[in-house]
Write a protein that binds this DNA or RNA. Sequence first.
DNA 1: TTGTACGCGTTATCAT
DNA 2: ATGATAACGCGTACAA
Lengths: 340, 340
Amino acid sequence: LPTTLRDVAREAGVSIRTVSRVVNEKSEIADDTKARVLAAIDKLDYRPNALARGLVSGKTSTIGVVIPEISDPFFPEFVQGVESVARAEGYSVFLCNTDENADLELKSIEVLAANQVDGMILCGSYLSTEQLQDVSARYNIAIVTSRTPRSAAVVSIPGRDGLEQITAHLIRLGHLRIGFVGTDIPERQERYLGYASALQAAGLPVDPCDRASTRIVNVETARQSAIGLLTQRPGLTAVACYNDLAAVGVLQACRDLGRRVPDDLAITGFDDIPLASLVTPALTTIRVPRHSLGEKVMDLLLRVMAAGKGYAERQETPIQLIVRDSCGGRQAADADGAKI
Amino acid sequence: LPTTLRDVAREAGVSIRTVSRVVNEKSEIADDTKARVLAAIDKLDYRPNALARGLVSGKTSTIGVVIPEISDPFFPEFVQGVESVARAEGYSVFLCNTDENADLELKSIEVLAANQVDGMILCGSYLSTEQLQDVSARYNIAIVTSRTPRSAAVVSIPGRDGLEQITAHLIRLGHLRIGFVGTDIPERQERYLGYASALQAAGLPVDPCDRASTRIVNVETARQSAIGLLTQRPGLTAVACYNDLAAVGVLQACRDLGRRVPDDLAITGFDDIPLASLVTPALTTIRVPRHSLGEKVMDLLLRVMAAGKGYAERQETPIQLIVRDSCGGRQAADADGAKI
DNA sequence: TTGTACGCGTTATCAT
DNA sequence: ATGATAACGCGTACAA
């Protein structure tokens, strides 16, 4: 029932090939036949079938972006970054949400692949490093991760560095008992390691009991585990968090427990999502330039698609300490060169 | 180079048809040939080409969801609602973000259509009512909107009712000078109309100068326009907002201006996004059940796909007044039967 | 139970 | 400049 090239060709009294030509604006065509074809296209309201096109040409001009959690404020700006360069290069982007579920993620990847997208971007994947390795060997894939797959195209977020920096910041402010709220996913310990490393560098003990973890990290899970941590370890004067959502959860926990921030407890985040500056007190955090990160992976994906599946490259996104109000000591920090 | 049915058939020593059968688990096949085929599939790592499949079958088992602004916290839970029922029905969902741009939205719809998705869901569309009418006549589409396209499948959000309710709430609390911060998009005046209607019902004047509008509504635009409004109309004791993001913007404006909330100014939102209960003070707002709204439109889309493009139906999502701290008077409101 | 052959709507390779 | 015609990978009558 939808109009096809054939219908248009019949209507215009030309061959299919000719119609295809005017549609794709390839080789030269006589002005009058072109006009006739255009008229027929318009009259019959013809629209090319992308499936047929992709089947024969082997190119769909689409890419897939797979993210684990659509409600995490980290992703919107990232996706917009991806889209801006994708659009400029003539690609349409399909977004897939996987609910922080590795099976669903794998499924999404296979569906996208089955639909012959020209490339995929994985951000914050829940796949095992091995699976990550697998799929990026099989398809055109660019990844955003802190991990180190043996050979793949990845832009990494220096989570370890970030937590080292921000924990050092807390230490400079005089904190001696600093906790950590994060995730217990084995592949996602780099931020915790940064925290621990900063403690060690300062000669402070790293006590596993100063740490609270949940698998999924969001405001609510962090709030719950922070309530536990803060009651069991009342001596903590600061808590470094896996990300801003966790920090907001700890903030909520303090509200529940009647502890004032930053007076009774200092809190730090990671990512600098918009929410970070909207809560009270505004969060001291590590900024990850999400929009440009998106542009950067898409650029990388372009290179992957040009070079083929084997292509490997590793880049790192810059980060920046942002000092706000959740740790107090704003003046002291300003002297360190940090800014809003 | 990717493996095809042909390759598998050759490897297993059977016909293409047979392979196709075991892949699709249709009619009965002898156990041994089935095993042979399965082995070949496994060995050659065969994966069906969804394009070819869709081309011949006319069905892709995919749907598209088009949203205007991925960074608006309204959408994540909505999308998850859609996905939950889509998944249960065997559909994969591709999400498209249109940056609140009607042209991009139309483009996205056409791309999805060209890719032969079985249906689409439009939420918060920026298309004109006429365009909305057009596309839903041309494709299988279910819409979430407050508008009234002549004939289409839509689930509506009673924005007018909502603002009537929440403005009445403000009036009950004793406010006589209530402003409004919203959008100037002509198709999106229903919430303003609800606000105006509540004022009139209470015998209060509706003064256009008590209103501030921007085209795009987000925290930053609302903050700016609220600063203008509050300086020019210092007599306002309350501001009703188009949505929670705007309300948070007004909250920021109050911070900038040194006005205390709710003491100096009461503020109300709409949507009850997670952020609404994270800011200080927490927002009094209208709750829109986003997850179930998503389920509801997806159910509707299922009916559209079954019945065909002509299908029209109209539903409405329930809403609920949520009283928190941004207007004070929590006890008085509790007496009205509202709750957290 | 299994195989043959056609068609889905395109693009692309030849001729003409 | 234009027209046949063969793919592309798969589903499905129809045959066997």
